[in-house]
Write a protein that binds this DNA or RNA. Structure first.
Lengths: 150, 150
DNA sequence: GCCGAGGTTTACGTTAACGTAAAGTGCTTG
DNA sequence: CAAGCACTTTACGTTAACGTAAACCTCGGC
């Protein structure tokens, strides 16, 4: 991904105990970092959400890959499907040389996601009120149980 | 949910062309009302999220059932599993005669859900910023395409 | 030289949340 | 009374998003 033509990525760059500028990650590192399994990461690649470089057979993830994974997981937490996430991600990548139709389509998708987020905000607000209510009642009952034994 | 002990729910109360106080619903009505299929509603019942009365074989839903369905669907939109939703719903129902342990457990669950919602709020905020960014770039590209034809 | 820690592919298994089809019941309407 | 419509049960099918197992490579260290 990283388009910036710089930094040819020195093979292992073992120049200190904690290299301050870590540019690549193994699949295992990413897995721990985000608390997912390597299977998940490979699956996301298979689904077209990631496309790490290879050193021989081994996958090498760079900073951009890491960000993508982060965004993907965030999307998942918000209930988006991998297909939806891929839609935005791919459009985004194709953007620089996209034609009008594609760009307008992208804007449509974005508006759609936005509307979705707005509804989720409202849902969260309502849900919080419900939880407030349930909790208040639960505490009341607990209090009324004040001196009984169980 | 609504526990208010009142209103014994008169069987059918057919007293007008458009009974202003509709207390019961058919499965089809609820399905249209919430834009889900009847299959979905029956499935939720099977999963212990609903328990409508029966008139013979037919399911009769009252106001409380309707609210439950609404809350269930809201939970779903927020990415909760049916199992999670059921957990809260069942605890809530068992509340009045719940013992301390159950009530504390309920409070735990609520705190958990709350934390979840908080993270979702943050995720939404971040996601909105991302969308802002993507949209801005897309508009820029579109503008730069100003006079080309496609 | 071999061993363990990580990486890889291939492929079948699993779970949640329904979809879909078949076959039957019950009312009411022309 | 036949047709139609809404409801019912039963049961197999489907999709997304991984889990899990087997069998393999490869590299640094003892």
């Amino acid at each position: 991904m990283t388009q910036p033509p710089s930094t040819p990525a020195p093979a292992i760059a073992q120049d200190g105990p904690l290299p301050r500028q870590r540019r690549t990650y193994s699949i295992g590192e990413l897995a721990k970092m985000f608390e997912v399994t390597t299977r998940t990461i490979r699956f996301y690649e298979q689904e077209g959400l990631l496309a790490p470089e290879r050193r021989g057979q081994t996958r090498i993830y760079n900073e951009k890959d890491r960000v993508r994974l982060k965004l993907t997981l965030r999307g998942k937490r918000l209930g988006f499907s991998l297909a939806e996430i891929r839609e935005v991600v791919m459009m985004y990548d194709a953007m620089p040389d996209g034609n009008r139709r594609q760009l307008r389509r992208l804007l449509e998708i974005l508006a759609d996601k936005r509307a979705n987020l707005e509804r989720q905000l409202e849902d969260i607000r309502l849900m919080q009120l419900e939880l407030d209510d349930v909790e208040r009642r639960a505490r009341d009952v607990l209090a009324s149980l004040g001196d009984q034994k169980d």
